[in-house]
Amino acid sequence: MAIQVIHFEYQGQRRWGVAHGRMVDPLPGSFASTADFVRDGIELAQRSARAQAVLPLDAVTLLSPITTDRQFVCQGINYASHVRESGMDPDRIGFNTLFTKASSCLAAADADVLRPAHVRLLDYEIELGLVLRRPLTAACEIGPDSLHEWLAGVTIVNDVSARDVQLPQAQFYKGKSYRTFGPAGPFLVLLSADEWRRWPELHMRLCVNGQPRQDAYCGDMLFQPHQTLTELSALQDLRPGDLIATGTPAGCAARAPGKLPMWVARHLLSEQGKWRMFIDKGLSNRAYLQPEDVMTATIRTDDGAIDLGQQRNRIVAA
């Protein structure tokens, strides 16, 4: 059975617990980071029982289940639908796009997202987050049926993005790393070996002010979790508690311009002029996030057996 772990603050103390409906079983012990919890707290969480849940969920302050000392690795253009809305051909995506976000952008699942004063084209991206269970410090081949050996669980990630920084400056890191641009949680959901096989059934939905924007299944990924872990193992060390955000499906505010604007931009405009046109057009696009907008995001299997909870984040002018 999938276990919904939360990281929270209560009466001035930061704790970890297991959610049973709207009640929480506070786990014994102190875990300063996600790495500490993954190393020493998973067995405690597995022994948690509903009868031990004595703390109302509404009485605690949610924290990100991924602490800011962990790495935040991301995949880009990993869903064919998003590739198409970005103006590219999925059949020509021959490689896995990898980048990082600053872990200091991590925020709670109900935290306000701060829009910096200079950012005008603020976008959302619901993503499935994978959380490492054990160190990955050498190149190795990871199979699709061994995810439970390497991964502790999953969480919801919203890869909030300043498109008017990311795209004109060609900087994924900079445009996606402002503080609060990484809501995560509410739960770190621990999965068994059998439950890991169901990751393609996880259904992602994101709404803005109640209006559906993104709706897709995780099984639509171009590069699947075992492939990404295998590739990352040859590039860098990964440690327990590190986070991998696996890309977003179609429905973002940012869209590729039509063929005529693309031709004009390519043949008649300077690089600066091209991006000025992009920003001017974006300012009339009401899908971009504005102060007081509210994003809600859920990921769960359709039968509810695996439920990552719901994020609710309000946009606030910084």
Rank of each mutant, 00 (worst) to 15 (best):
166 Q>W: 12
303 D>T: 00
84 R>W: 08
238 L>M: 15
115 R>T: 03
54 V>I: 05
223 F>Q: 11
292 E>I: 07
248 T>W: 07
285 N>D: 13
270 S>T: 08
16 W>T: 06
293 D>P: 01
284 S>V: 07
30 S>D: 05
298 T>E: 12
15 R>N: 02
176 K>I: 05
232 L>Q: 08
161 S>I: 09
300 R>I: 01
231 E>D: 13
169 Q>I: 02
266 R>T: 09
289 L>H: 00
314 R>V: 12
243 L>V: 13
276 R>D: 13
174 K>N: 12
43 E>Y: 03
81 S>P: 14
16 W>H: 09
92 R>E: 15
216 A>S: 06
27 L>V: 08
258 G>T: 10
29 G>T: 08
220 D>L: 09
198 R>D: 06
67 T>A: 14
148 H>R: 04
89 D>P: 12
178 Y>H: 15
130 L>E: 06
261 P>E: 07
120 R>Y: 03
124 Y>F: 12
317 A>W: 03
4 Q>V: 06
121 L>H: 02
48 S>A: 13
243 L>S: 08
159 D>H: 05
104 S>T: 15
21 G>N: 09
291 P>L: 13
269 L>T: 02
223 F>L: 11
250 A>F: 01
186 P>Q: 00
290 Q>V: 02
140 C>T: 09
205 R>H: 02
64 S>D: 12
80 A>G: 11
156 I>Y: 00
98 L>I: 15
236 Q>M: 15
267 H>F: 09
160 V>A: 10
176 K>A: 14
1 M>G: 07
293 D>R: 03
115 R>E: 04
178 Y>E: 15
270 S>L: 05
176 K>M: 14
141 E>I: 06
196 W>P: 10
178 Y>P: 11
7 H>P: 11
131 V>M: 04
97 T>Y: 03
39 R>Q: 13
62 L>I: 02
176 K>H: 13
240 P>N: 15
245 A>S: 15
275 W>S: 02
15 R>Q: 08
39 R>M: 09
287 A>F: 01
231 E>I: 04
293 D>I: 04
18 V>I: 08
282 G>I: 04
40 D>P: 00
267 H>R: 09
211 Q>W: 05
139 A>F: 00
212 P>S: 00
56 P>C: 13
159 D>L: 09
240 P>D: 14
211 Q>M: 06
189 V>P: 00
200 P>G: 06
157 V>T: 10
122 L>Q: 08
316 V>E: 03
292 E>H: 07
284 S>Y: 01
247 G>L: 06
24 V>S: 10
75 Q>D: 07
57 L>R: 03
278 F>S: 04
240 P>G: 12
71 Q>K: 15
281 K>I: 01
18 V>R: 00
81 S>V: 03
164 D>A: 08
56 P>D: 13
63 L>D: 11
172 F>E: 11
187 F>D: 10
287 A>K: 03
119 V>L: 04
299 I>P: 08
277 M>W: 12
192 S>T: 14
166 Q>D: 12
68 T>Y: 14
10 Y>M: 01
133 R>M: 10
189 V>L: 07
31 F>A: 04
90 P>G: 00
65 P>K: 01
3 I>E: 13
261 P>Y: 04
235 L>A: 11
84 R>M: 12
103 S>Q: 08
141 E>H: 06
73 V>K: 07
53 A>V: 01
242 D>K: 07
33 S>I: 06
118 H>D: 13
113 V>E: 09
75 Q>T: 14
177 S>F: 15
68 T>I: 14
